[in-house]
Design a protein around this nucleic acid. Structure first.
Lengths: 129, 129
DNA sequence: TCCAAACATGACGTTAACGTCGTGTTTATA
DNA sequence: TATAAACACGACGTTAACGTCATGTTTGGA
């Protein structure tokens, strides 16, 4: 529950490298946090959450550019957003895409099971002399 | 139903570029098909099917290297394979990975639904004056 | 206060999956 | 048979998403 950590702490908690943090910062995926004149950057728990969210989205196959376009939706309360309907639209579109991907994977899974069955069947047949 | 096409025909049917065909050929994803001394490569309908399968697998997030390790499984009958147990192992490992991905996606889906709910709730509350 | 550990920044390197170009050969059609 | 279209092959280019130095500054504990 720290609310003022530096990059080492942050990257360790989020499970990414410092290089990645700096890269995302430059790419606009996480907000910058500099302090006065010393040059060091300070981050909060929300940054950890953002990094984890980014990781999730990456695993879904989104590029960093795509993520940058939607990441903010996950970190603002609805009362602060002006074009709420638009945001809702994007979220629903993401839901549809996710369902598509799940369906594709399940189809793939079925294919895999069929192949496994075929192999096991062959092994069993060959086994009984 | 051609069984002897050249690269132009092949790439058009499979919906990939000629460069991609040559790249996959060099990477061992599709079998080479040269003819005598003329230098030109000839392909069959199966190559079209392979290219389409590769595209499917790519959309699931598999790398070309991962695909190369499994693509043959879709295009040979089990009776022709020597190390059947090994192949079975690979298939089962892919099954496990697929299950992992599906689980991740479903978690993400749940998150999405929660966010959507929050937005819709807010809109409904704001609506009644 | 001193000094090792942590941080900042710039620059060059790396991998995957192709794109693009140049040049030379093969095929197919008028 | 001539010649444009298709093909082969090598080589260099490109983008994303970082990794890996190198070098200089800041922090925090003995």
């Amino acid at each position: 529950m720290k609310d003022r950590m530096r990059i080492g702490d942050l990257s360790e908690r989020a499970g990414v490298t410092q290089r990645t943090v700096r890269y995302y910062e430059k790419m606009g995926l996480i907000p910058p946090g500099e302090r006065e004149g010393n040059g060091q950057h300070y981050y909060t728990d929300e940054t950890v959450a953002r990094l984890r969210k980014i990781d999730q989205l990456k695993k879904l196959g989104l590029s960093l550019e795509e993520i940058r376009d939607v990441i903010d939706l996950y970190f603002m309360d609805p009362s602060g957003v002006q074009p709420k309907q638009k945001v809702l639209g994007i979220l629903k579109q993401h839901l549809a895409e996710t369902d598509q991907k799940i369906e594709g994977l399940q189809q793939f899974r079925t294919d895999l099971l069929n192949h496994i069955d075929r192999f096991e069947q062959w092994l069993k047949d060959a086994e009984q002399h």
